[in-house]
Write a protein that binds this DNA or RNA. Structure first.
Lengths: 341, 341
DNA sequence: TTGTAGGCGTTATCAT
DNA sequence: ATGATAACGCCTACAA
């Protein structure tokens, strides 16, 4: 292993020459303790000394070694993020939001994948053990029991996307979102409505979906009895495509459709557009995925990036006595995919 | 707080009790050095000793403190990843690929955003200074000069998406990809072709785009002189939408179109589908974005996740004497968006 | 094969 | 306000 050797002796061209705090102390004519204090903006350092130290550090091109600092202080200044998949629009928005806040706070962001239903297992062994001050759990990463166990093992955690009573959570009011969608369609005069429900094999009992459906039906019920035909399908564009075709093939197709996610809605839109002689069907989605803009899809906007920001802020703040349950505002974005009957 | 209270009662919700290597040494009746060696699978440890140590560690629920290990060894066992945007399909695929490999190798993944044209600046100060053994640069993160500076400052780096001669890079043969697209259209008998070129404001001179265009024109030239009308536009779905409308409004619209990215192609498809009385226009994209499947878009497949995997592997492997320039295989995926004249 | 002891670079606790 | 000097927990020559 000659790798770690180049750290102290580099025979090659130009030297990285990482100085240590001792070098700075010598250069500034003070003790290492003072350097440490000065560089960390402690109040009990005279202005002149601080200046001298800062200048010396700059001159020597010095930067503190984070590992040494972490070891000595026990503070990792790092936040971990765990999600079942990293490539979904949702997850990457959360990551981006988290990263924004952490960067500004001078914290590091450690990323990991984990299968659903993570337990504290993931924070030990191969996980984030002693490497993070807190962890952000995106999506359906663990059940109540898993969250409770995390707390028990002393792991600071925040959930994004669903409610876990043991830890601070950030989610949207899915029920209300569903209601907004339904209310919009009802308001446009639709009286025959289709519902496309996406089901994830790995997690058939998604609370998000149930809540959205519930809110949606509430809206329909609130304004008389609007018949509704439900098509469960795969949680994918393909699924939405198939479901929409199914609806269009009905003897009496609905005049409007609510899909529980934008992805499903995209598939539905495509199926609809593909039929030359299709009836006019309004479509509403849920998410406000970037593609929704281009598709002209009316949808329920979910402030995902902001949720990521908030999650990071929660983790950076002092731990609240009790877990806080945040519910973010949802809003309907009306585009061209919906119109009155 | 009674500290030395519980040592074996693990089931009853006992707090972490973070032991140190010394505790394990005592428990196993060996020295800390032996524990360190045994736990890291060193060959020069007798089987019986290793067993005893492993068992003791397990009994004490011990896990080494990574910061201490990092400080002592100078090895961070962490890889950093820097990208201009985290939310693009491309970036998140790379991240996912990198994460796969690093997880398996027991390495950590540190994530950061950076504006284009990063210099070594980003690896100092607020960046990854002394926290990573290497860095993956996604997309147009730095120019040749920046890469050279990185090398000079001793930062191990690998670029994904473009060629930087100073460091190991992983990219696709964009020229060939463009050729595949053009050849496909020509082969289908198209003789009047449109080209939609996306331009990113932050980086107008994208080499990827130029290469794709170049390869594309080569294919057209190779088979006689096929006229081509080029429409530069924003690198976005909206841009593709507008560009396609422009082409369709021409007195003699082309019978086929190549868009330099899938995103552009999606917009083009939408514009096309939106016109009830549009002529049949074949469309080819570039990327093989997941939405392309649903859209039925013929496109040039880019193995992005695999590129991420390779980048991680390169960083984990011993540093090559000379930077290696990897060029990944591209392939045309034919779907329903293209057909013969 | 195993043990001893010094060191990694900071931070934190006392003094002063 | 500043300076000694232990921790921090592990790794790694060097010895045995």
């Amino acid at each position: 292993m000659t790798k770690s050797q180049s750290r102290r002796s580099n025979e090659s061209g130009v030297p990285p020459e990482r100085g240590t705090i001792a070098d700075v102390a010598r250069e500034a004519g003070v003790s290492t303790a003072t350097v440490s204090r000065a560089l960390r903006q402690f109040p009990n350092v005279s202005g002149s000394t601080r200046d001298r130290v800062v200048r010396a550090a700059h001159r020597l091109n010095y930067l503190p070694n984070p590992n040494a600092a972490r070891l000595a202080s026990g503070d990792t200044r790092t936040i971990g993020l765990l999600a079942p998949v990293l490539t979904s629009w949702y997850t990457s928005e959360v990551v981006a939001g988290v990263e924004e806040v952490l960067t500004e706070a001078g914290r590091d962001l450690l990323i990991g994948t984990a299968n659903p239903l993570a337990s504290s297992q993931h924070f030990r062994g191969l996980g984030f053990h002693q490497r993070t001050d807190g962890v952000i759990l995106v999506d359906a990463l663990c059940e109540e029991e898993g969250a409770a166990e995390l707390v028990r093992s002393g792991v600071r955690a925040v959930a994004v996307g669903e409610h876990l009573s043991a830890i601070t959570s950030i989610k949207v009011d899915n029920r209300h979102g569903g209601f907004l969608a339904g209310d919009h369609l009802v308001g446009l005069g639709h009286t025959s409505i289709g519902l496309i429900v996406g089901i994830l094999e790995a997690r058939p009992e998604s609370p998000q979906t149930s809540e959205r459906v519930y809110g949606f039906t509430e809206a329909l019920r609130a304004s008389g009895h609007v018949p509704m035909v439900t098509v469960p399908t795969d949680l994918s564009m393909q699924g939405g495509f198939g479901a929409m075709n199914h609806l269009l093939d009905l003897p009496a197709p609905p005049s409007a459709v609510f899909a529980t996610t934008d992805e499903l809605a995209f598939g539905a839109c495509l199926a609809l557009r593909q039929r030359a002689s299709a009836p006019a069907v309004s479509i509403v989605g849920f998410d406000d995925h970037p593609v929704a803009v281009a598709m002209g899809l009316t949808t329920v906007h979910q402030p995902v990036r902001e949720m990521g920001r908030l999650a990071a802020r929660e983790l950076l703040a002092d731990e609240p006595a009790e877990p806080v349950q945040h519910e973010m505002e949802l809003s309907l974005v009306v585009r061209s995919s919906t119109s009155s009957v």
